[in-house]
């Protein structure tokens, strides 16, 4: 256990990097998910096809291959990415391709009647998506998004293979200098587990927050409270 204590600052740095990569990768993932997912649903082939190819390619090949490609192969085209950039890019694009399918699925499964009601009210397609269809789809997207984010968090460990000094990278360093393999790996397993658990908590909090009838429930509670005041 002394290695863990002695190298605590290094592990702390690693943890911060892991969190940083998760947050940046997650943000990119969301952008990619909505862009590709909505493009996939477009009426225009010019949008639909590239999005489809992007999604299939990034879901169909390994994240590690993608990360290595950005890190090792891209320089041959004269583009040298910072390891952190390559890592975040690969994570965001890869998980974003999965999340795009979540977006597509949630929106496509919206009842046809909702779109028709929008048309009957004269709403154009952009307004329909922005005000009605996307807000309605959020509750259905949240649980699978939560899974994607946990996946993304766990996959950040791969960035250690392209020299980003995350939690796994730090652990490997400490292992090779101290040889205290068991203690160090148990420690980071527990740390990853704690992070995953936090993400799960966050997701279920968001689920409650965005539940369709929640808004009305709060409004009603206020109303009831007022009525009680009035009656008293």
């Amino acid at each position: 256990m002394d290695a863990v204590i002695q190298y605590a600052p290094l592990l702390w740095q690693g943890l911060l990097t892991t969190i940083l990569v998760t947050v940046m990768g997650g943000a990119l993932c969301l952008v990619v998910a909505f862009t590709a997912g909505l493009a996939r649903l477009s009426r225009h082939r010019i949008l639909r096809w590239p999005a489809g190819i992007f999604i299939e390619v990034f879901r169909g090949t390994s994240l590690l291959v993608q990360m290595f490609w950005l890190f090792f192969a891209l320089p041959f085209f004269g583009i040298q990415l910072h390891p952190l950039t390559a890592a975040v890019l690969a994570l965001g694009l890869n998980e974003g391709a999965y999340a795009a399918e979540v977006v597509r699925g949630a929106i496509a499964s919206r009842a046809k009647g909702q779109t028709e009601a929008c048309i009957a009210l004269g709403m154009d397609p952009a307004l329909r998506l922005r005000r009605i269809i996307i807000p309605q789809s959020i509750p259905a997207m949240l649980p699978p998004f939560g899974n994607v984010m946990v996946d993304l968090l766990k996959n950040t460990s791969l960035v250690s293979l392209v020299t980003v000094a995350d939690l796994t990278f730090s652990a490997q360093m400490i292992r090779s200098t101290t040889g205290q393999t068991t203690a160090i790996f148990i420690t980071i397993l527990v740390m990853y587990f704690a992070l995953s658990y936090l993400l799960t908590l966050l997701t279920s909090w968001l689920e409650r927050r965005f539940a369709l009838d929640r808004k009305a429930l709060t409004l009603q509670r206020k109303e009831n409270a007022l009525m009680k005041v009035g009656a008293a």
Partner: peptide, 21 residues
């Protein structure tokens, strides 16, 4: 739950480096 909450890579390291000990 624990296995699902931790990275495959780290699990692989544990099997590869820790178990032989």
């Amino acid at each position: 739950v624990f296995v699902r909450g931790t990275p495959l890579l780290v699990q692989a390291y544990v099997a590869f480096f820790v178990l032989p000990a």
